[in-house]
Nucleic acid binder design. Structure first.
Lengths: 78, 78
DNA sequence: CGTGTAAGGAATTCTGACACG
DNA sequence: CGTGTAAGGAATTCTGACACG
């Protein structure tokens, strides 16, 4: 499911990450949530998986700018 | 996907229904969204399908109390 | 660099009610 | 019966910033 339907609060629960981390990963171009009219972020289940992967990689010593390349294949343009 | 992850606003967009209609169908026991700590409803993609079905049936002349039975098979307890 | 937090505002959602029919 | 709406409150999310290191 690539449809962006979840708010950041739900993603927080599903990933165990904090909102700060999620927003930071977006800032670093690792995830690309949609936005509602009221500028609230909307994520997909795929985003949740990517986020988990990002966090794992970071704990393995990688940096966000390094992950930007390895996560590139996730960007499927529908 | 039966995971309850969407807020009513997303469901509104996905189904084309109003929040009033969605809440009313819940009141009539046709759908069973989860709740967040802050009492906000959370729906699944299956709920979205059921909601569309409910609206179609209503337009076909059925009443909510009649649909309660025909939708019973949807209640899969995980 | 990656993450925590307090700050103030804006958008979202909630409930109970009155309305129509 | 099914749905619209105005009302007030509570919870959510947003951005920019300061902090640590």
């Amino acid at each position: 499911m690539n449809s962006k339907v979840m708010t950041i609060g739900t993603v927080r629960e599903l990933t165990g990450l904090t909102e700060r981390q999620i927003r930071y990963y977006e800032e670093k171009q690792l995830i690309f949530p949609d936005r509602t009219q009221g500028r609230a972020r909307k994520f997909s289940f795929e985003d949740v998986d990517i986020l988990k992967e990002i966090h794992t990689k970071l704990q393995d010593g990688f940096h966000t700018y390094e992950l930007r390349k390895s996560l590139a294949h996730h960007h499927v343009r529908s």
